[in-house]
């Protein structure tokens, strides 16, 4: 298949892939599962293209991905075991220099509810404005702010809980 022209629907989806991939990785916390989620999402977006109202394709695609992820998780916790082939693909992005700090951060992020986590990720990783997050998740901006607040306070608490070194900058 030829690369679709950028102005086509397929071309626009193609241009969104890096952003969608980052979001799927941040939701699933795994490269392999992130790819699966990304693929499911793209399939669904293409299948539903007639429902797209022509505005904010990225927000629409992210909403579909968020829902797919939520629905897939509903039956219960996924198995934590992976086979060796998959294990090689588990996300190991650029780590903060201190591995302990990184582990704490990961733990803190994992402790967030799906809702609060999604908002934090869209703001911090995707650089969405608050109104873009509101549109993407179909919630009021006030809800975006309260979720963002909860997420940040929670992460800060968890990071401090077993940490004698505070994150505060010296005055």
């Amino acid at each position: 298949m030829k690369t679709p022209a950028p102005e086509t629907f397929e071309g626009q989806i193609l241009a969104l892939l890096p952003s969608l991939r980052r979001y799927s990785r941040s939701l699933t916390r795994s490269d392999a599962e992130g790819e699966d989620l990304l693929q499911d999402c793209v399939e669904k977006v293409l299948a539903r293209r007639s429902q797209w109202r022509g505005l904010n394709l990225r927000g629409w695609a992210l909403t579909i991905m968020t829902n797919l992820y939520r629905n897939a998780r509903r039956p219960g916790p996924r198995s934590m075991t992976v086979d060796l082939d998959t294990a090689e693909n588990i996300a190991s992005p650029e780590a903060p220099s201190d591995p302990l700090e990184r582990a704490r951060l990961e733990d803190a992020l994992n402790s967030l509810s799906e809702e609060n986590r999604a908002v934090l990720m869209l703001v911090v990783i995707e650089g969405y404005t608050y109104s873009e997050v509101a549109a993407a998740l179909d919630i009021p901006v006030g809800t975006v702010m309260s979720r963002l607040s909860r997420a940040r306070h929670r992460v800060a608490e968890r990071m401090k809980a077993d940490n004698v070194i505070t994150l505060r900058r010296p005055k």
Binding site: P93, E94, R152, L167
Partner: peptide, 9 residues
């Protein structure tokens, strides 16, 4: 926090 999350993802 944001900087650390960005470095991670």
């Amino acid at each position: 926090q944001s900087a650390a999350i960005q470095a991670m993802f």
